[in-house]
Nucleic acid binder design. Sequence first.
DNA 1: TTGTGACGCGAGTATTTGCTCGCATACAAT
DNA 2: ATTGTATGCGAGCAAATACTCGCGTCACAA
Lengths: 196, 196
Amino acid sequence: MRKQPRQERSRQMVERIVAAGREVLVERGYDGFSTNHVATAAGISPGSLYQYFPNKAAILDEVVDRYVAESAEQVTSAMSDRITALGPDLVRDVADALVAVLEADRALLRVVAEELPLARSRARLTALERQVREVSTAYLAARPDLHRRPPAAAAWVMVLAIENLAVRWVLDQPAAVSRDQLLDETVALVSGYLVS
Amino acid sequence: MRKQPRQERSRQMVERIVAAGREVLVERGYDGFSTNHVATAAGISPGSLYQYFPNKAAILDEVVDRYVAESAEQVTSAMSDRITALGPDLVRDVADALVAVLEADRALLRVVAEELPLARSRARLTALERQVREVSTAYLAARPDLHRRPPAAAAWVMVLAIENLAVRWVLDQPAAVSRDQLLDETVALVSGYLVS
DNA sequence: TTGTGACGCGAGTATTTGCTCGCATACAAT
DNA sequence: ATTGTATGCGAGCAAATACTCGCGTCACAA
């Protein structure tokens, strides 16, 4: 950020910029995300953007960061209460929470998941994945009696599988799989895998 | 295509354009994929591009179409011989073939999988997914004695899971999972899932 | 050999882009 | 009130972009 907003007025402007950025990103896609469009959508002048953001990418980063952060928070909070028991219930609830978060703004999810070339957005996601993976690995390693897979590899497989199924289900809305069915199959996938 | 190349000379030029397009896409990414760059890389003039391609997107489409088509062919040929028995061996061999194909050009895979905003490329991939899914669904429906999942949903889950694990393994090269391990876990995931 | 159309060129155009800079205004402190 | 600073404006620049067009060159059929 190029300058710190000191007055309330300018703090609101930063918010307006980020909100407009999100809006433009959803409505015009990654290719249509231009500084002039964002400025227009925010009802401000192009020059004002650059008071607080060094360049176009910074605006995009902020938009994506906020989206990923708020989504991550929802999911991790669904996990945090119940780390003690990695059972079918937890898997189902986490998958449920994940799907719910992704459903909240499908249009934005589509752009972020399918268009953004930014290494930045992947970095944020990867960090979340790693965090979940480490917790899972630790649990699997502590309870070898409950499964028959190598902990590290199994955690990697499960996290990616659950995440990807949820994302693709929300984006593609396959007719053959209802929402409940998705959760059922996710649970079956994980539990069947762990004991095989 | 705007004009059909009639002479050998012009047919070679089309090939040069597509090859240069692939090269530019890999080296400069989606954002750097400009008509001028492609023309330069092909050693031709910008005007010559537009003799055979109506616009920039058409060049990109051709590059991606060829990549997806040639990859799809490799995978489907690994399946076609053995459709009769959807067992652990087949799963492992298909996953193996898939990983091999994806490994062949990681740089291009990265751009196609993580940058391209084209609905076009997803459409091609989705078609392949659907094809594999239908074969799997038919098999699962014909052999209800071998598993306990709803065929259509199970096929959807398996195809996406296998595909995504392979792609992410090739792109991320996780230290915790060797190539053999990936295949082992994939087989375990599928077989454990089907009987649970 | 010659004529005709396919071919290729590359300077050029119109547009869009990210971004700047000089200036006017709003605010806070004295 | 006055002064200093934070804020915002918007015309406009330099660069890049997708794409065109008139002209020369080439291959091939007659």
